[in-house]
Design a protein around this nucleic acid. Structure first.
Lengths: 206, 206
DNA sequence: GTCTATAGGTTGATAGAC
DNA sequence: GTCTATCAACCTATAGAC
């Protein structure tokens, strides 16, 4: 242990890389990708612009890291931990809540990549490599519904993965619309969607 | 009638405004909003940069016009012309096709507005003023399903607008995923979704 | 790893002639 | 309405000292 060296002030030098990434992600979500500039990122992170390029090489490198970090919570989704229990209403509610939470974080990141074809290609490559996308949620819920169908708790004769797609699609669309806050555009409340899905999947009197 | 004055070459001077708008929309769809710069727009439209600002005042003004033009085909959707007939399968197919076509055009425009909060506000105001959004499609299909339900051709006890939301959501999500071409991410084919929806809505044996 | 300073390029926007 | 010419602002990226 040496004497305490007076730090320059503020953030410890070691956290630079993480601070830059966090700042970039925050800027992207709060103000849009057009505002994710080296200047604003550096200012928010409390470092110099040169640090940004030192750690991430160039703007594309930084945004690639932002994409990976911003999409990381998807792992929680594909684990499918919330898909247990025999009460369809509960399962759908938990699933929708988890999906909502994820999309709230991930949708701004995903749509940001569409602002430039070069960025879109970067993100598409990452999603392909990691096998990410809405199909993960559809597959997870679809598998659950298929099992329930086999157990006789879900109406027979219905493609469980297509049914899952309907439910995931509704959640996705609601989340997407929240990104564009035109308050007039009101969609049916989540509760009605869950109830309708339940009702549609309930085994009929045979 | 005076003598024929030799035109400078190429496009007639009168079409400048429209050419600029068309070029901007094309650039936005093909390369992303980050490439919709005054320079590239002017070059593609075959006019000078100054013309862009003369006609649309500033970049925001141009993009506002692009948004309005890019979302205009929504009118076809809300008219609900494709929602007639008693064969649910046909109606769903026609509806999905129309929605797909619209989203193919409109989604790149809508997501572009998310790249910057200032632009997002401009588009949100326009969508609010014109009452645009996914809720239009949901309302149109929901009303149709409600009528079919009253006629006994759709299962009773199901919220028709919530059911419409499920179907519209699936179409929307498929279209959104097409924007991010990660080929691995495969969702159930449209036909399966239509069939499942049909099956779910079919009146059960009571 | 972090900084200051700066190069070099692109962009939005205006002035003024035609 | 359209052009050429020009600018100030901004942005990415690098060099070199510490």
């Amino acid at each position: 242990m040496t004497d305490e060296v007076p730090r320059r002030r503020g953030r410890p030098p070691a956290g630079g890389r993480e601070a830059i990434l966090a700042a970039a992600l925050q800027l992207l979500r709060e103000r849009g990708i057009a505002r994710v500039t080296s200047r604003e990122v550096a200012a928010l992170a409390g470092v110099s612009e040169a640090s940004v390029f030192y750690h991430y090489k160039d703007r594309t490198g930084l945004l690639q890291a932002v994409f990976e970090q911003g999409l990381e919570p998807l792992q929680a989704l594909s684990s499918g931990g919330m898909l247990s229990g025999a009460d369809l209403h509960d399962v759908l509610t938990r699933f929708a809540d988890t999906l909502d939470e994820f999309l709230e974080q991930a949708l701004p990141v995903m749509s940001a990549a569409l602002s430039d074809t070069a960025l879109r290609d970067v993100m598409a490559a990452y999603m392909t490599a990691q096998d990410l996308g809405p199909h993960r949620g559809v597959a997870a819920l679809g598998d659950y519904l298929a099992a329930e169908q086999a157990a006789g708790r879900v109406r027979a004769g219905v493609d469980p993965h297509a049914a899952a797609m309907l439910f995931v699609g509704a959640c996705y669309t609601r989340a997407a619309q929240r990104q564009m806050p035109a308050r007039v555009n009101e969609l049916p409340p989540l509760e009605n969607i869950i109830r309708a899905t339940e009702e549609l999947l309930r085994p009929g009197p045979v």
